[in-house]
Design a protein around this nucleic acid. Structure first.
Lengths: 203, 203
DNA sequence: GTCTATATTAAGATAGAC
DNA sequence: GTCTATCTTAATATAGAC
């Protein structure tokens, strides 16, 4: 309802914030509001009030609501990666991400919905998702291929196909979780990786 | 753009169609328009024109655009099932459905987007997807469990977990296909089923 | 101090929901 | 018709460079 308390304390009279900082503030606050209200349900007015600026200021930093959404999604990715050990890549990163998702259901839902709706090339986040899918599949395929050479992982299927399956299981279970919170994405993904990637004895 | 549904020429002047028939016509035409223009992009006015009725008539049969969408999605399911051998259930049905999806990309995209956006309990199609996921997982689990007793399929994992993975791979690959049409959902799903469900030798 | 780039806002157009 | 949300336009305020 009322957020006026935040205004004057966070932004002393007569001072302008530096562009990059204000941009950060807006993304952070938009993250919270989008995660709580959903994309359509969120009003930019509320975001602006919480930051302590007028709506018009938001449009100075972002061309529109969709561009702000893209910034929120990209920033979540960035934070996610930053919070993880550098050595963790590929398969273990996927499982770790699924565990993080469990802790932020609002953002995870936002992400799942956006990944489907942004399929339209006209959607502002289309490029972001297209590139990200390519990157994730590439990184996973490289990790799997490395494991294949050491015999740690089955080699009877192309690494790239296996990578696509891992990503598919992750996204697909996430979708089922939207409708049934008993579904555990991290557990299911782990089970899948253990079961599918284990070296195969010929039967 | 060509719309192949039943046209107004099938309705002689001065005759009212029976409710069920008109309803059918509307659903068929809406299917074409939604598949071509997408849900948001589609104008109900256009659907009405193509059917040969006023927009108000649409609202007589469906409370709103979302309810019409639900009817379109449900009808696609019904037709899909009707066109398939009765004996085909479970795993082979999943692969067959993926093959059909390849032939109707517009509808498939519509379905993928709707399955993510309808996660909100307030969305008109929410109940449809929730029930459908439960049904599909149940049917698949039953099929897999049967195969497990015959030794045709691995038994070291619960049938229900395997069923959820199969559904996840199907939906997940479909999502990747939205961004890269080179992804072949049916092939990937087949590969996955062959690889994962094969009885496991102990390693 | 003046100048310029950037930050911010007031006011309102437009479109859709109720 | 009223209300609310997105977005535009154009004018004002501030910070930093010189």
């Amino acid at each position: 309802m009322k957020y006026t308390g935040l205004m004057s304390s966070s932004k002393p009279r007569g001072q302008y914030a530096k562009g990059a900082e204000r941009r950060e503030q807006i993304i952070q606050m938009a993250t919270d509001v989008f995660a709580t209200e959903g994309f359509e349900g969120a009003a930019l007015k509320r975001v602006a009030e919480l930051v302590g600026v007028k709506e018009a200021t938001l449009f100075h930093y972002f061309r529109g609501k969709q561009e702000l959404l893209t910034a929120v999604l990209a920033e979540r990715d960035r934070r996610s990666l930053a919070a993880i050990e550098e050595k963790e890549v590929g398969l273990s990163l996927m499982v770790r991400s699924a565990e993080r998702n469990r802790r932020e259901p609002g953002l995870t839902t936002l992400y799942a919905v956006a990944s489907a709706t942004a399929n339209d090339p006209g959607h502002d986040s289309h490029g972001y998702f297209k590139e990200r899918y390519a990157e994730v599949v590439d990184a996973l395929a490289a990790d799997i291929e490395r494991r294949q050479t050491t015999g740690e992982t089955r080699s009877d299927l192309p690494a790239r196909n296996l990578a696509r399956l891992v990503v598919a299981v992750s996204d697909g279970l996430q979708l089922q979780w939207l409708y049934d919170k008993d579904v555990d994405v991290a557990d299911g993904l782990s089970e899948f990786i253990d079961a599918l990637l284990k070296p195969q004895a010929q039967t």
